[in-house]
Amino acid sequence: MDLWLIGELALTGALVGLMYALVAVGIVLVYKTSGVANFAQGAIAMSGGYATWAIAAFLGLPMWVAIPLALVAMFGFGMLVEHAVLRHMVGQPVIMIIMVTFGIEIFLRGFMPGTFGVAVKRLDLGIPQAPMFLGEMLINRAYLVGGAVSAALILAAIVLFNSRAGIVMRAVSDDQGASWSVGIRVERAIAVAWGLAGATATAAGILWGSVQGIDWSLSLLLMKALAIAILGGLDSIPGVLLAGLIVGVCESLATGVIDPLVGGGTRDIVASVIIVLTLLVRPYGLFGREHIERV
């Protein structure tokens, strides 16, 4: 096994991992603001891909117009999910809320292909197909662009969380009653978190759609995103960044190194192994906050 190949696997894995992490950002945003585990994020990413394709195909708009429109539309969709569903679940047991978000996931998985047809849709962002050479490493340009855009958006999310708007979201997650008492519009903060989850998922759906086309299988990104969110600590965006890189690199190395030995199939178990191991060994993840017990 030569080093160039390992390097290629690791670098591609890192880029792919960043693209997974972008899906996980929305899970963390929502969890961090409202304490709700958002199991609909995979299908929201998929729907964002469909929305972009549909806007471009039916309205005959170029990508650079269709993408911002889709981002805005899916921001609205995220807020709608909060308004129409989750706001009414306040005070319900956690398991009920998880089931509801997962129900939305399943619904969208069926609804989108049902509406637009099951054939894979092409989403062409104009990224050249020819791979790029770095030394002897072959790097797919779509992953390069996808990884870079994802990293930039995740960094933007980190900046947001340290701005006043982000502080308000974190305050809401700490104590809703106290948030009301100092004038925070709690419901609006939570709706905005869902809106941002919708928009970031859409960005991820577009990037993944340009790589593998758009069909229901984009929603399987949920598994990777959950693994990353759990490993990163569920409420830490820097955690998402690091966990994304870890999951992506592990998957890629498993595919390149272990698959040839065992005959394939390791890629898809990496995420589940990471979920289980994290929950067993370090349930609050790499960067998750522990509960502060004092007062």
Binding site: I167, D174, D175, A178, S181, R289, V295
Partner: peptide, 12 residues
């Protein structure tokens, strides 16, 4: 309103 039990945002 300063609530009973202080209720600061503990992680901030």
């Amino acid at each position: 309103h300063v609530l009973e039990g202080r209720r600061v945002f503990g992680h901030l």
